[in-house]
Nucleic acid binder design. Structure first.
Lengths: 109, 109
DNA sequence: ATTATTAATCGTAATATTGCAATATATAAA
DNA sequence: TTTATATATTGCAATATTACGATTAATAAT
């Protein structure tokens, strides 16, 4: 059906999955890495840098913005995108907590 | 087109995205949490626990296994699944490294 | 041998995602 | 005002994902 049965999971599970899902595309990883690399905001340039069509990049940026990982500010005809530092830290913690769940001790395999 | 242009990204970017993608479904998050919770292997029971049909759970388990987050061992008619501790740690580090990229200092927004 | 149990696979329907051309929008420059 | 520039939105085609009923495979129990 292609539809996720979100209603049978906890808000935490759904939130974590949503966050991971947004990170689940190499173009979005590349965009985020570029934002880190240039140490400031991206005002365009991502299209040439990444090599996907402008509408495609725009769409990926939208998803990153929706989940709160980046934010954009319009300056003239350009839009400057940068990491949303506060949310970034929060999501880092969300993922860390999950991965820090204490590992099982009694293996049967 | 529904097809990701993996070839224009680095292996690292694709690897990270693949890992995140697998975590991008609440059922798979729930399965992993359950594996942690019971502190041992899951031999069935996931179907009742999670509330999706048996083929659906089986499919999710397959994806978790493919990426290496869990491993399974056949014992009789049952299959015991548990966290693949070694890979788990590796993936934790992969994600941590990404999130620990030093945050940009010069904000323009 | 037959039956029960458990999990994987197949087939299929519904929905989501990816990517881009075409277009729209909105500001800057001339 | 007209034109150029940058980004968003729309519409669509191709592919992927999710979910599950039906079936299969493989062992256990009777």
């Amino acid at each position: 059906m292609g539809i996720t049965k979100s209603e049978i999971f906890t808000p935490q599970q759904n939130r974590l999955a949503s966050l991971a899902k947004v990170l689940g595309h190499p173009a979005r990883i590349a965009i985020l890495e570029q934002l880190f690399k240039i140490k400031t905001c991206v005002c365009g340039d991502l299209v040439e840098e990444i090599g996907l069509a402008q509408p495609t990049i725009s769409q990926h940026l939208k998803e990153l913005k929706n989940i709160g990982l980046i934010k954009g500010e319009i300056t003239g005809t350009r839009v400057c995108y940068c990491i949303d530092v506060e949310n970034w830290e929060e999501m880092k913690n969300t993922l860390s907590s999950f991965f820090d769940l204490s590992l099982p001790e009694n293996h049967c395999c």
